[in-house]
Design a protein around this nucleic acid. Structure first.
Lengths: 204, 204, 204, 204
DNA sequence: AATGAATGAGCATTCATTCAT
DNA sequence: TATGAATGAATGCTCATTCAT
């Protein structure tokens, strides 16, 4: 009986706890030193575990980087999907996507650095990156644009795939510049200026 | 004797020759293996010089990467400035900038890979990157936009700095996607689609 | 309840069971991967116990190797002693020793690999090896030879100690070659050829 | 001209010198600590070179061990071949082989330890070992025995292959015991006792 | 007794950089 | 200028062993 109670309340802590701690520590360490200059030992000590423990949860240093990406994109996509469900206006949907995008990165500078800088540093990763979650994220934008085209809100002559990249690229650049800027400002509001121009540009 | 003949018939300064050869070799090597996985010995052998010779022209491996960037941006900016001089319409100027941007990267895939992928992999570099030539490039776009605003062609309510980043971000994303895509297509024409939306979006 | 039932129906001491299982598993694992490349975790899983359990029966990985040796030599020596008791002719005794020696190794290739290869890889072990059971094994041979000398069957001018090493070395080489050979043949019969020459060589 | 003179007198020193030094140092280090417990850093420092230098001459730690073996066996075989050339009596030839065998190992205890102990510690190596130089060494003994059989000096009923292993095994055991023994004695003279019995055993 | 998660010491190898020639 | 042999600092990962449960 004790066991079943414990099982319910204490099922993943020992595992999930450490995995989480390592992921969080790695985000911090990668953001500060860069992926290649970060030592696994740094991550371990930042996470409060022994070096070897890292390898109980991740196969390699590279897998840690991948996991940060995967987890974040998965969360972002599913959160966005959920919020978009109850919305109708494609313009509003794009605004929401942009807002969520910048909000999430703006809320965690370390995560933003990893996404905007560290994840870009290898073609190999960029390719997998492109193949996996990134595609589903771009697909979300694209579907909304096509939806708007069907509804006659956006110009139908545009290539939705290219258009979605334009929006993504603009948002991505906002995030990158925000990271590099010394002056601190809020990232999320930049989305409005991007959307203003973008929607104006694509509207029918 | 062979040597003296070669000296006579070969007017290019041997120094510039080798510097150039190393830079070109490094672009190729970085593009294929990634910066961190590229060995200085690989670059040297690809350039046809001894390992140590690399250090007669560059202080370090990192400086080679910087030099690739600097040389290209300097050329790009001065070429753009030259061409823009004889133009009046801000819209046409932006079209020209976009075209030159994508034309240059589209003409040299290795260079494009270095610019879109390898140069992004370190915050440190991104910061210097931002500080140096990149700023002057963004400044070029920004000046053109402000010019358009003064002439009443572009909406005056827009923040020219942000607007220039949006355009850059969109073009940048086109370049990155082009590199990662397996299907081969021409990069430069993508500029038209970007400009269509962008100009539509910012026009008064 | 299950447990008590199992306890009742299972007369073999659980301790000896596991110790045996670990020893057997280790012989297999060492033979296949070599001592240094074998992980304690492999042995544990091959034995069907948890990693930590191994340390309830053995102080260290090295002690497992020693135990394999000790158990086998002890068995071999006592079995040989027992069989020799009822024999008189020193020549027949040596034949029996050789036969038992090769029979035992020939019956268990994994054990043979551990004896002929893995046990040789450390001076430290070789020294203890020499000191312990090995000495008693060589002593058995030597005593038989001295016996033969006293009886006038073997030449009395020979140094029994050296002679016993010669016989052991020849048998040992048969075993090593048998392991390394790709072609499968029976090991035990090789003993006859060794004894033929050996006895011929030492006979008075 | 200078060059050709230098080439003649100074062709390998810088290379051969260091390769030699590393090989010698490795023999010493392996003999004292065992192969698996020897660090490449130990070998390097014992050889008076930097760690990295070791890898300019050897691909890996394992290759160093192989090289020690190869060099020694090659030398031993060619030296033996040379000396046997001018001899006729097969019995004398075997005496010479045994003498050279034990003489060489007896003259360099470290080398002997590597040969008798360290080289035995891995099936993988033992197999290559068997395949390469070792085979040619055994072949030398075997050829001499067959020669003796043709001349009617040795019993023709014996399997020369097995007989050669018996002799090798006996000599090998002398060497191993010599290493393990605390009491210091000369190794080479043991060969006479082995040959006494062996020749007696195989003679027609 | 048994478990297996956690530990952390240990190490072969790489490679940017130097410098004697 | 050019060379390339030599350097040695740097680190991801393994795995024997421990110990709380």
């Amino acid at each position: 009986m004790m066991r079943s109670v414990r099982s319910l309340s204490n099922n993943r802590p020992p595992v999930a706890d450490k995995r989480e701690a390592i992921l969080r520590a790695a985000t911090r360490v990668f953001a500060r030193n860069g992926y290649f200059n970060s030592k696994v030992a740094d991550i371990a000590s930042a996470a409060g575990v022994a070096d070897g423990t890292v390898y109980l949860y991740f196969k390699s240093k590279e897998e840690i980087l991948h996991s940060i990406f995967d987890r974040t994109v998965d969360e972002a996509v599913s959160e966005a999907r959920k919020q978009l469900e109850e919305m109708r206006d494609p313009r509003e949907k794009l605004r929401r996507i942009a807002h969520l995008h910048l909000e999430r990165l703006g809320a965690d500078r370390d995560l933003a650095v990893v996404f905007q800088v560290e994840l870009r540093g290898s073609t190999k990763f960029m390719e997998e990156f492109s193949a996996a979650g990134f595609a589903s994220y771009l697909g979300l934008i694209r579907a909304t644009i096509e939806e708007g085209q069907r509804e006659g809100v956006f110009r139908s002559g545009l290539n939705a795939k290219v258009v979605s990249k334009i929006l993504f690229g603009a948002l991505d650049e906002m995030a990158t510049n925000w990271i590099l800027s010394k002056r601190r400002y809020k990232l999320a509001p930049m989305g409005d200026q991007v959307l203003d121009i973008f929607l104006n540009g694509v509207s029918a």
